[in-house]
Design a protein around this nucleic acid. Structure first.
Length: 414
DNA sequence: TCTGGGGTCCTAGGACCC
DNA sequence: TCTGGGGTCCTAGGACCC
């Protein structure tokens, strides 16, 4: 029997957090979709990846099968390099909308276990299990039950991490994959986490791992036992949190309430580099429409707008501007975006362009410009009317012909 | 046919004020 | 003849996450 009763933590009063992570989410979900559609091949069992469309210059690996992983293929690799590592790799497209539906379906099932659930990404969540002992007497057994039931109900596997805090739950679910349940209780940190290579620690990415290794810190245990004063010299304010993490300490709460985004952005990589100003402006206009709509949906106003662009040579720039008056108007935002663009763009070919809104506020604190107040009010109501029509009939049902005839009427970019 | 997209958070440095 | 220093706000860039 796989229920390990020795591992049962239900008798003490410690906090219990679960982390649930879909194994190779995009690939697993695609596998389920294809099988449901009658395919005889389970793409999880062959060398396969989910990748973007190379003809649109989106050619990166977004998820990989276990076989592909064994051949050295990593998420973020170019499809070109994935093929180099594995000649007969099968590449499947990315069905984002479908993944969103699968994600929703999973979390609504998990919400029944405990209302204290934090959706951490499209395929991961934390569940606060503290104070549910009266319902679940054996957490490890429960972990297996959840995992197996997800497989039975939905046809894909997950990893479950069980620990006394979020960090350790996340580290635990990342141990051996797929289709596994792991615990990482406080007393297990030394034996299970300390031997791991430093880059495995949450929030230690490639750059930090490299720097730590150059200091002779090679494992999580090394980091846990590093003098904080030494580490602070190299990592400033990050040092204390790094050492805490390495010791399995984390007091962060499971956040159940969605509190809105801190920023909203869109960006687009073009099929071919573009140096045509009118086309670039049209693209930005459509992007502004999108972010402004999302902003209004959150019922907030932005005080900072930014453009981001990437040159043909991959150098990226961001240019931002703080607004005197918070706004949620498509027109206002577009005006600022164009201003920034005209000022900063040197006319060279661009590979990618995007817009970003940040520093939101709920209060308008509006000082209506005396001469333009009529226009402002008119634009605001136009935005709202367009939002309601677009949310009913699709995002491009109505185009702001009144706003900018040139852009709205020209369909060079759609 | 080389290198996506959407987020959060931190830091360094400049401008400006007292 | 000598150019301090603390605080705040803002921008640009980068690290990291999925």
């Amino acid at each position: 029997m796989f229920y390990n009763l020795i591992g049962d933590q239900s008798m003490n009063n410690e906090r219990i957090v679960f982390h649930i992570d879909v194994n190779n989410a995009f690939l697993s979900w695609t596998a389920v979709k294809l099988l449901n559609e009658g395919s005889r091949v389970d793409i999880r069992k062959i060398p396969s990846v989910i990748g973007g469309d190379e003809s649109k210059r989106h050619g990166v690996v977004l998820a990989k099968s276990p076989v592909a992983k064994k051949m050295g293929i990593k998420t973020g690799d170019t499809l070109y390099s994935a093929r180099k590592k594995c000649k007969n790799i099968k590449v499947f497209p990315c069905y984002r909308q479908f993944y969103k539906e699968k994600s929703k379906e999973l979390f609504s099932y998990l919400s029944k276990l405990s209302p204290d659930i934090e959706i951490f990404s499209v395929d991961e969540c934390f569940i606060e299990m503290t104070n549910t002992n009266y319902l679940y007497s054996d957490y490890l057994a429960l972990g297996y039950k959840i995992k197996d039931e997800i497989y039975r109900k939905f046809g894909y596997t997950v990893n479950v991490g069980i620990a006394n805090n979020k960090l350790c739950a996340k580290m635990a679910s990342d141990f051996e994959k797929p289709n596994k349940v792991h615990t990482l209780y406080n007393e297990e940190v030394k034996s299970k986490m300390w031997p791991l290579e430093i880059g495995k620690l949450f929030m230690i990415g490639g750059k930090s791992a490299e720097k730590l290794k150059s200091l002779g810190i090679n494992t999580i245990g090394d980091l846990a036992n590093t003098d904080i004063n030494v580490l602070t010299k190299y990592f400033k304010n990050q040092a204390p949190i790094m050492i805490k993490h390495a010791n399995g300490i984390d007091n962060s709460k499971v956040i159940t309430e969605y509190s809105g985004n801190k920023c909203i952005s869109v960006s687009e990589t073009f099929e071919r580099d573009i140096a045509d100003k009118n086309i670039l402006k049209k693209i930005m206009f459509h992007q502004v429409k999108k972010v402004a709509y999302l902003l209004r949906k959150q019922n907030v106003y932005t005080t900072t707008v930014a453009i981001t662009f990437k040159n043909y040579d991959f150098k990226t720039y961001t240019r931002q501007i703080k607004l005197d008056t918070p706004t949620d108007s498509t027109n206002d935002i577009y005006e600022k975006i164009v201003l920034l663009f005209e000022k900063e763009w040197d006319g060279k070919k661009l590979r990618n362009i995007g817009v970003r809104l940040s520093n939101f506020t709920t209060v308008r604190n509006e000082q209506l410009d005396f001469f333009n107040s009529g226009n402002q009010i008119r634009n605001n109501s136009i935005d709202k009317i367009i939002d309601s029509i677009n949310s009913k009939y699709g995002s491009d049902s109505v185009i702001l012909a009144s706003l900018n005839d040139d852009i709205a009427s020209n369909d060079a970019y759609k």
